[in-house]
């Protein structure tokens, strides 16, 4: 696992903060590491914080989408949190969406959703 992003395991949830300068290789490594961790830790969800990402291009977008699909097959829900407004606008223009992942404004929104509580 590269140092580009650390994975934390809290309350059955894998938390990942993606670093700003993550390279293609790093994110591919992350995808693999996360799939393994979901099974090893019996995680019920993966929360990916992408707030540090200034841009999400088609490559990173595709990896994020694949990650969510893999997680789903392994019975874990993926949340993408912290997406910058400009990134959201750009993704729409690229014609990309993240079908299998839930998006939440912040980590606490995602955790609240996971606990089944309505958002405040």
């Amino acid at each position: 696992m590269s140092a580009a992003s650390a994975i934390y395991f809290v309350e059955g949830v894998l938390l990942v903060a993606i670093q700003e300068d993550i390279s293609d290789t790093d994110i591919l490594d992350l995808q693999e590491a996360l799939a393994e961790r979901i099974v090893r830790d019996s995680a019920r969800a993966v929360v990916m914080d992408i707030n540090a990402l200034e841009i999400v291009d088609t490559f990173v977008g595709r990896i994020l989408a694949q990650l969510a699909s893999v997680s789903k097959l392994l019975d874990a829900q993926t949340y993408v949190v912290g997406m910058r407004p400009a990134v959201a606008m750009t993704l729409v223009e690229l014609g990309m969406d993240l079908p299998e992942s839930k998006t939440a404004l912040s980590l606490s929104h995602a955790l609240q959703d996971l606990r089944g509580k309505p958002l405040a």
Binding site: D57, R84, A86, T90
Partner: peptide
């Protein structure tokens, strides 16, 4: 502004890639 920058940098990323 940030939207301008994000859009252009994303384009550069696609073409560079």
């Amino acid at each position: 502004r940030s939207v301008k920058k994000t859009r252009f940098v994303t384009a550069v990323s696609e073409i560079g890639r």
